[in-house]
């Protein structure tokens, strides 16, 4: 039961991650490969605020989101005209940079050894120390974030983003401020994933740079793409599958020596089949075919 709740907490965190990435990818049409980087920035800022500066859980979490959002502005200002492939290149570079900083700035991040002893979430004097309690708290927070994201999605802001994704030139020609909106959605998505990073840090109580590398970014992208872009249920489904699938494969009886490799193989084959059979993702909107 504890194990299932543990998975549930991961699902709640990654639901926020996948939905925020979907804002960029599914609505803004921006292929973001540095999402785990901003997730890491959020995790580390929240951790430092809690451990060294004695911030409360919620204020630390919010500031972590602000830090990640602010960093995205630092990236998007010089890359104001970022488009398509160039944005992908920039985001790979940013991912590498963030990882390098987390790994090498030992005086602040403790480098590869990571930071341990991160306090458990505490809201209004109540400490959420058991996995069950964290499941409830994170579920509540995830619901708030889902609400915010659906508000954005159905607003004129969401519609304008969708227009940019469909046809950037046409969007400009009807007066949509394309660059400004891209910066805004980038900042919002980064802030949301920064908060998710803080949630992760508080739950596992130990962070090190390997949780925020390129592989994690690709896992996040896979969640959105497999689940389906452009709506809410797609990324949720994607996050659910990519969290439970590796766990389910644990229960397949395999010889110990080759188990790990076979699991990876099954996982890879499933992904390929999925992409062949449903290129728009499991729950992607049919219209986007």
């Amino acid at each position: 039961m504890n194990y299932l709740m543990h998975l549930m907490v991961y699902f709640e965190i990654f639901a926020i991650v996948a939905l925020s990435l979907n804002l960029m990818l599914g609505y803004g049409g921006l292929l973001q490969i540095a999402h785990a980087g901003y997730y890491g920035i959020g995790a580390y800022s929240a951790t430092l605020l809690w451990v060294h500066f004695g911030f409360g859980f919620i204020p630390g979490l919010i500031l972590a989101g602000v830090c990640a959002g602010f960093l995205s502005l630092l990236v998007s200002l010089p890359a104001r005209r970022f488009k398509g492939d160039y944005f992908v290149m920039v985001s790979i570079a940013v991912q590498a940079l963030i990882y390098a900083v987390l790994y090498n700035w030992t005086s602040v991040t403790n480098g590869p050894f990571g930071i341990s002893g991160i306090p458990k979430p505490e809201v209004l004097g109540v400490e959420f120390s058991s996995t069950g309690a964290v499941t409830l708290l994170y579920g509540f927070i995830a619901l708030i974030f889902i609400g915010v994201i659906s508000l954005l999605k159905t607003s004129p802001f969401g519609r304008a983003l969708q227009a940019i994704r469909d046809d950037e030139l046409a969007a400009k020609s009807v007066g949509i401020p394309v660059n400004k909106l891209k910066m805004q959605v980038f900042a919002i998505a980064s802030a949301l994933v920064g908060c998710a990073g803080g949630l992760y840090a508080a739950y596992v109580s130990y962070i090190d740079p390997t949780s925020f590398n390129l592989n994690e970014s690709i896992l996040m992208l896979s969640m959105v793409v497999i689940g389906g872009v452009g709506n809410i249920r797609g990324p949720l489904l994607g996050a659910f599958i990519l969290i439970t699938l590796p766990e389910a494969l644990r229960f397949v009886a395999l010889p110990d020596a080759i188990a790990a490799n076979i699991r990876l193989l099954i996982y890879g084959v499933l992904l390929i089949i999925l992409m062949l059979v449903r290129p728009q993702g499991l729950a992607g909107n049919y219209r986007y075919q």
């Binding site: 508000l151 954005l152 004129p156 802001f157 969401g158 304008a160 969007a171 401020p177």
Partner: peptide, 16 residues
Amino acid sequence: VLTAAPSIGINPFRAI
């Protein structure tokens, strides 16, 4: 047609 309207909700903070 609606994408073309100057709308206050294009500001994400007002949208939220």
